[in-house]
Simulated scan of single mutants.
Amino acid sequence: MSKLHADFYADAMTQVEAVITEQQLIAEETYRVRVSAASIASTAVPGQFVMIRLASRNSPLIGRALAIYDVIDDSDGKPRWIDLVYIRKGTLTQALAASPLGTQVTLWGPLGNGFSDRPCDRLIMVAGGIGQTPMLLLGREALGNQTFGDGSRQNGWASQVELIYGARRESLLAGVDDFRNAGFGLTLCTDDGSVGEQRLAPDVLAERLSKLTSGETVRVATCGPEIMMQKVAEICATAGVDCQVSMETPMACGIGICFSCVAPIKMDAAEQDGSEGWDYKRTCVEGPIFDADKICWH
């Protein structure tokens, strides 16, 4: 596992004044917005995020962190647009949902690190709530369907990709057709049984891992409610499976200045120096992706 350090300060980010070119309701209170931001689209990797704010508004003054859901090429095959998925809930997202096409937004990004491109036979992604948002790019890269970033990452590093996606009810599942069309295996779970299996997503994962064939290498990536990710991490630890989590810690600045998004992370032996064995790390610059065995869940 990689040593934790702030390799992902915002030095390489760009600030973009962009316009909304598409806006679509894709699930209950859940929207997908498309903005023209070529400098971000061309450098982003799966798991990174942007900060967004409405250029014409001072309330809220700070931006909102949103994972990059999709990268769309222009007719010349060059990345030009990014899609962001959000739930209409707070001041900014309510205003964003009400914004007509052509509304100007300010973006800065791409920010944070990204999921590893460590090769495996099988990638299993486990998402809950709005945690499916970083998974589309990751799965496409793993299957070799799309290349992201500056060309330093490999693609086609997994033979199979599956998304296990859970929500309270069917109406809250967002982007299901996008994952199907990307060629992922897809298992839906709902608390009320309105679609798919009436089970918790981590329980489905545990069943998958119990049926692995000898010698099959598996990686797990997860994002969603913390209690769900903790359960996924525990299942993977028991099975000896490589697992990464995307932390959804609330952020204010997104660039490592305000220390509002810290998470308790275990330190390597060389880093401890008589300490308690863990320290707070900023999710925005040392995450949001962490190896699951580094998280102090208690």
Rank of each mutant, 00 (worst) to 15 (best):
M1D: 13
H5A: 10
H5L: 13
A6I: 04
A10N: 06
D11N: 11
D11I: 08
A12I: 05
V16T: 12
V19F: 06
T21N: 05
R32Q: 08
R32Y: 01
R34N: 07
S36E: 13
A37W: 05
S42F: 05
T43V: 10
V45Y: 02
P46M: 00
F49A: 00
F49I: 00
M51W: 04
N58D: 15
S59W: 08
P60A: 06
L61H: 11
R64T: 09
A67E: 10
A67K: 06
A67S: 15
I68S: 00
Y69I: 00
D70C: 07
D73A: 04
D74E: 09
S75H: 09
S75P: 08
D76S: 13
P79Y: 00
V85L: 07
I87P: 12
K89R: 15
Q94E: 14
Q94S: 14
Q94I: 08
A98F: 04
P100D: 05
L111R: 02
L111M: 08
G112N: 06
N113S: 13
G114H: 03
G129E: 10
G131A: 08
T133F: 02
G139I: 00
G144F: 01
S152R: 14
S152K: 14
L163K: 03
L163W: 03
I164Y: 02
I164V: 10
G166E: 05
L173T: 06
A174Y: 05
A174W: 06
A174I: 05
V176C: 07
N181G: 15
L188W: 09
T190Q: 02
D191Y: 06
D191S: 14
D192G: 13
D192V: 08
V195D: 09
P202G: 03
E207G: 11
T213S: 14
S214T: 11
G215E: 09
T217H: 12
P225Q: 01
M228W: 04
M229P: 14
M229E: 07
Q230E: 15
Q230V: 06
K231I: 04
A233D: 11
E234W: 03
I235V: 13
A237T: 13
D242Q: 12
M247A: 02
E248D: 13
M251H: 04
G254E: 00
A263V: 14
A269Q: 15
D273K: 13
E276P: 13
G277K: 13
W278T: 02
D279W: 04
K281Y: 03
K281D: 00
R282N: 00
R282W: 01
P288V: 02
F290V: 02
W297D: 15
